[in-house]
Design a protein around this nucleic acid. Structure first.
Lengths: 199, 199, 199, 199
DNA sequence: GATGAATGAGCCTTCATTCAT
DNA sequence: GATGAATGAAGGCTCATTCAT
């Protein structure tokens, strides 16, 4: 890994931290530079603008998220195992990086909406969400193949399930639920999904 | 209704529009004033600061939302009717006020987080969400009373269902689904809820 | 005294209070109106502008000061008595109206300097100072007539003595000197004046 | 001298000019920046706020004043020489920097009084005045050591003399007195001081 | 005459971005 | 490549003043 790549990542890490803690507008470039222990001007050697950096940060974190999720999910084979792995892993990542969660899970549409290249950037955000939903869809498809439910509307269920899981994980964190209570709610979530889909 | 109340509402309407379109930070007070066809200073006669206005806008829209939802929901008696009414009404409001949706449904936590009085304001936001979830919980309780499902974990389901409905309605709008397709998905949603809860 | 005159004075009293406490720029018209228990607009029925009001306030207070000083001083006849009366009375007024002191004694030149009619207003301020110095000069002239010192440079001494007395009185207040210590310093002041003048 | 120090001083010089001409409130930051031929934002690289700048300007000018006064006064040894040097130098500085005079000699208490850190800043202003008075007191002490007068109340006399000298110098400037007349009044001042103190 | 709602000019301050070193 | 001093556009907010009632 080249020195350049290192410094770029260094910025991305620091920016993740700061954006996560302060949000796009209240984060400022100087703080990110300080966090990365580099000069303010250096950021502009690697990123065109604050907005570009922000989008790269989101992509960066989603990439990290996706890599980890895929590692966990694809190491399993059955529907039950994969779903379980997904829920566990997703919740884990969220609790580990409570601060970063918003960067990945919230659609930052409001932030991006008014930037010059809003069209392009909104597409990126939509695409990344789509990619996560796709993983869920893959899991559901296995469920269908296992005869657990029909293949109807699986994309709809996948989309909704992502939202449910997010909310459920966030709830656990905000309410500081015990490990047991957390596991109980995870079971409810799975139950809700499977029975909700089945006809 | 006094002249004062009128102008205050006038500002709230205009601010809703601008905040919804641009988000908190990219909206500026002058634009809100122009939209309301009043002077910039007038806004500060009715609201202490931009942030105060923003929070009042959220409360204002949630109030409108809650009033309308309650009118529709409470005019029904059975679980099925009330749930249906809630879904229809919620979806309707969202589609009518696509722009404003974010002001009510997103938790604006990131915007508020760094403001001085963040503690108090975050509480307001949490409270309003809670109020909506409470309406759903009331509906679910009727379902329980009708023997449709047990009373276990209803608050958890209510919380999640709100997220699901939001996402579902948003999907319809973004994907510009036909009326039929929309109704179909609503049925799926209800199905998912009822079967998901039932043990 | 007409109702109008009353309201005008009412404003002048309130404005004195507020200007004295906050200074010209940090005082605001609303506060003065509130203090006078009248509407903000009413002030502009009696005074053209905030600056005009400020100048009238200064004149108003100097008038009150001069009237009182003259009453005291002119009731005496000898140099010693008059000088003593002047010192006592001046110190008394300052201690009673510590807050207002600045309005009379400081030259508000810096405040006025940039107003549109600065030339005219600066003249007013200079004139009022001159009027006070004139009273001192009259006292000194009696001292000369009593053979206490020559008539040379009496205007110079009068001018300086006003500054000395002001500082001396201010010192007493700031340092919160005891009555005895105060009287001692007054004696020193008189001593300094008489011996300073005498050749 | 570093580039930074240069620019900071550059700002201090320009700010002295503008503050002296317009007073604190009527001076505005843009004008100071223009005067210094720099961007408005640059001022905030060197000073936290307009108020901070103002206080630094006062300190800056008093420092210049004190340095110069001390150089002149300490190069002399006898009471007469030192006193004369002080008067000459003080008057000189005032006439050279007529505009800046107010920044050093007036207590800017009214400007500062309502600022947030008023307590701290008022102390600074009081301290600087004290420092000047101390120089006078040192001179008077030499006079006492030379047997010219007793050591009683010298601090009181020093305090008052500062006020007298200021007024005297200001008078000269305002009245545009001739060099001769000026020197004559200086003699009167010294005479007044020495005879005023002597018992 | 009295009022205070409405106004907008004006100002301090921030901060993303540039560019000379 | 790295830096950070310099910049100025932009924006929230204040408040003296006006004027319709």
């Amino acid at each position: 890994m080249s020195r350049e790549k290192n410094k770029r990542d260094q910025i991305l890490y620091s920016a993740s931290e700061v954006f996560a803690q302060k949000g796009y507008h209240d984060a400022n470039v100087l703080e990110i530079a300080n966090q990365a222990a580099i000069g303010k001007g250096t950021i502009y050697e690697y990123f065109d603008s604050k907005m570009t950096l922000y989008l790269e940060v989101i992509k960066f974190n989603i990439e990290r998220y996706l890599t980890r999720i895929r590692n966990q999910v694809l190491s399993k084979t059955t529907f039950d195992e994969r779903l379980h792995a997904f829920i566990i892993c997703h919740t884990e990542i969220l609790s580990e990086n409570f601060k970063y969660a918003g960067l990945m899970m919230n659609n930052s549409a409001d932030v991006v909406f008014n930037s010059k290249n809003s069209h392009e950037t909104l597409k990126i955000l939509a695409d990344t969400r789509h990619e996560i939903v796709q993983i869920i869809l893959d899991i559901l498809t296995i469920g269908h193949e296992e005869g657990k439910f029909s293949s109807d509307h699986l994309d709809y269920y996948a989309d909704l399930f992502f939202e449910m899981l997010n909310r459920s994980a966030l709830r656990s964190l905000v309410m500081q639920l015990s490990k047991e209570k957390q596991q109980q709610e995870q079971k409810l979530l799975i139950h809700m999904l499977i029975n909700g889909i089945r006809h």
